[in-house]
């Protein structure tokens, strides 16, 4: 059949293109030997891409909104946990712990006790060098 006759021609074509592409890829890799390492290394550094203030605000608000006792419509960047959101001191501990988990932080007790509103939480996370 015609297909059988075409087969060797097609195969030769594929083999040809494969041998021409490989040296090109090798040359590209040789020209930028650290491109892969840079790409892999970037997410592991906390300083290379430090969190922006807007990102911190957004993620803290998301944590608050997903807390079961918080009315999402009341969450604003200026809200106070107890006065505006109606949380008690136990809820506040849970919320601060959730923020810790979100940003992979460990907030010492002394600091965590002082965080009783969204502005304080945002300020703490934004100023923390290890927040990720």
């Amino acid at each position: 059949m015609a297909a059988a006759a075409l087969r060797p021609a097609i195969l030769r074509h594929i083999r040809l293109s494969a041998t021409t592409v490989t040296p090109l890829a090798a040359a590209a890799a040789a020209a930028q030997p650290h491109a892969l390492a840079r790409w892999l290394g970037r997410p592991m550094s906390s300083h290379a891409d430090h969190l922006t203030h807007d990102e911190v605000v957004g993620r803290v608000l998301d944590v608050l909104k997903s807390h079961p006792k918080v009315d999402p419509s009341k969450v604003t960047p200026e809200a106070h946990f107890e006065k505006d959101l109606g949380l008690d001191s136990l809820d506040t501990v849970e919320v601060v712990m959730a923020i810790e988990e979100e940003f992979k932080l460990e907030i010492p007790d002394m600091e965590a006790d002082k965080i009783d509103s969204l502005p304080l939480a945002i300020e703490y996370v934004a100023n923390h060098p290890m927040a990720g």
């Binding site: 001191s89 136990l90 501990v93 849970e94 712990m97 988990e101 007790d109 006790d113």
Partner: peptide, 18 residues
Amino acid sequence: SKSEVLSLFRTLLRTARQ
């Protein structure tokens, strides 16, 4: 005291996380 209670609560939650 209140801060002792909250500290115990926080420590329990931290331990639970592990």
